[in-house]
Design a protein around this nucleic acid. Structure first.
Ligand SMILES: [Zn+2]
Ligand SMILES: [Zn+2]
Ligand SMILES: [Zn+2]
Ligand SMILES: [Zn+2]
Lengths: 131, 131
DNA sequence: CGATCTTTGACAATCGTTCTCAACAAGCGT
DNA sequence: ACGCTTGTTGAGAACGATTGTCAAAGATCG
């Protein structure tokens, strides 16, 4: 009933901290394997899922539908500007947008409102690399 | 080289118009079958893909990753407030948000900026139905 | 009508993600 | 340190949405 601390779980968290940007489960699995800290793929998925439920990591969907995970600095609600190519991420605050979203939704009689606000682009480095 | 008008393609467009709200490819396929206008599932996917490329339909991803399609009234850029349960959709304009999004992204040196802004909720009818 | 050339559809294949379940190991009380 | 209990792991199967394959069907045009 209590969450147990295992080698695998700490390894996943370490990999997230080390990589810093939004990464897919498979990328993390590969990174762990490369470092010698082998962890089963299913276990990586389970760890990320648990971390997401505990709000320890943020999850977002890439354009192709793959889930990307990141350990953000703030625990509070925020959004992201993400590089499509390398995953580089900037955390974004949008007080105006938050207010706008809830007002618009309420005006239409909708409940249990959630919003998805993400910005995608190509970061300066990736633009340079593409020459 | 030219797009041909076929029974299947017009059937898909008709189903979209009739259903009005965001629907998955499989839901549309089922709706067509129910009406007797049988169309292959792969064909439904191909038709939706073509329509999306031509900006004739909007596509968005449900929380479970499934793609949902809708024939919106406006062709111009806009966003959506969607009922999680029944797919009921309200088209949303957000001039403030548009300005905010491009300013924030540019300030970070990102290029080719796109944004995802979608609102999810439970519509009045679905809330009532859940009694 | 006939030739051309896109489109269709049943089915296989892909791919991210979840499930299964026997082997394993944390945490705990002794 | 030693078992017990019970959550956790991992290899592989299963899943589900989507896409690829390719021979047969049909839209368009002269
Ligand atoms: Zn980049
Ligand atoms: Zn729309
Ligand atoms: Zn509803
Ligand atoms: Zn917009």
């Amino acid at each position: 009933m209590t969450a147990r601390m295992t080698r695998q779980r700490t390894a996943v968290v370490e990999a997230l901290d080390e990589l810093a940007d939004f990464r897919s489960a498979q990328q993390l699995h590969e990174a762990l394997r490369a470092r010698g800290e082998s962890v089963g793929l299913a276990t990586v998925y389970r760890a990320l899922q648990a971390l997401a439920e505990a709000s320890e990591v943020d999850v977002l969907r890439a354009e192709d539908g793959e889930s990307l995970y990141r350990r953000c600095a703030r625990r509070e609600h925020h959004h992201h500007l993400v590089c499509r190519m390398c995953g580089r991420t900037v955390e974004i605050d949008g007080p105006t947008v938050e207010a706008w979203a809830s007002k618009v939704a309420a005006a239409q009689g909708f409940d249990d409102i959630e919003h998805t606000i993400e910005l995608w682009g190509t970061c300066a480095d990736c633009r340079a690399a593409a020459h």
